[in-house]
Design a protein around this nucleic acid. Sequence first.
DNA 1: AATAATTAATTAAACATTTGTTTGATAAAT
DNA 2: ATTTATCAAACAAATGTTTAATTAATTATT
Lengths: 218, 218
Amino acid sequence: MFKFAFYCKKMITKKHLQILGKAEELFATRGYEGTTVRDIADAAGVNLAMISYYFGSKEKLLEALFKERMSATKQRIETVVKNDTLSPFQKMEIMIDQYIDRVSEKQTFYKVMLCAQVINKNTVVLKLLKELKLVYATLIREVIEEGQQTKVFKNDVDVVMLLTTMTGTVTNMLINKDYYREFNDQRKISNTAFEEQLKSNLKKHLKQIFKVILGYES
Amino acid sequence: MFKFAFYCKKMITKKHLQILGKAEELFATRGYEGTTVRDIADAAGVNLAMISYYFGSKEKLLEALFKERMSATKQRIETVVKNDTLSPFQKMEIMIDQYIDRVSEKQTFYKVMLCAQVINKNTVVLKLLKELKLVYATLIREVIEEGQQTKVFKNDVDVVMLLTTMTGTVTNMLINKDYYREFNDQRKISNTAFEEQLKSNLKKHLKQIFKVILGYES
DNA sequence: AATAATTAATTAAACATTTGTTTGATAAAT
DNA sequence: ATTTATCAAACAAATGTTTAATTAATTATT
């Protein structure tokens, strides 16, 4: 007899995504260990046993979250890098814009990701993180080498250092957002207006830095 | 009768520091919630009950750790900023060097701190973090304004953005260190040599960035 | 189309561990 | 003689996971 469940064992339904979304929020505010499966079940409005039923275990739920959220990332970068109509310069700027928009859009997950990079335990999550970093660095190196050949970029560029400044600045801003707002006294403007302002500032800031490190003229 | 314990209730003995050190290591690798008081007691080689006896509770131990590690930070920055023999330019460069050396020296704690900034719960820790950030930003702004008056620095400098790039790059490198080493194929050199190399690279990198953002000429 | 058969979804309760903390007794230090 | 430090044991509460029963949904058969 044909077993549908066998072939689609890892199929993600809407209910899966609903639970993952609530779990993500809790992980971001309380941490993985600080969140109980009862918390997740309550937040998602499902019975406690459904977590094990849907994901197998709390740990596999975490893995599922990372797989889900990181699934399209690689393709997104590749689309830019492999686009022949774009110059290396354009590719770098688009990459900065894309990254900032992405983090802004998926703030909760990037908080979870940040902690996961420090508190490393789950091998599946570690593998996903490592792979993503390697893909990122390799693709960006391609772009930089392309720019170096056309004499647009400097010859000695520390790729990972540059990427670390980009990801570090953006993820750290995620943490310091409130202080940024308070310090610059932007408490009066609306939340959405502030978010847009911040994104704009970050993009300008990082592009200025990239310009210097890569050595191109605008 | 004279009560020594009353006046020195919060006195930190060598045993306190020993336990704090082991707890710090565990928090950095497993997270606060992921670490049990039994783990800490075992690692420190003391009886389980001693943790409560010395610190009152697991949470107060965390607070004690933050208080201990952050105690001298404010003074360290102030010493540089209030030093009249240094130019604003020199102050900024010293601050970068100091920060990188400090994070490199206390890597474990900065990992704990990074997670604590995301997973905020303990009010004492939150207050310490907030105060430190405000002190930092305020002092740096003083230096920048000093440099602006003598026309050494540009007039429109986003202080918190600049600080975010510094702390973000350094703390993110803490997380990406292994990838950095692997990607640049520096696996052959010794650990200490790599650490020194990395510190040197970070300092050079951030000074270059600061130079552009602040607009001074070297 | 109606009904039986089968699979999937949901639930409350129970399970065995693990958790942070406390106790009360004993040893060490003052 | 009094305080301080240390310990094994016990405590209740919380934890992730499983069970067994029930309901809902789907598929197969008449």
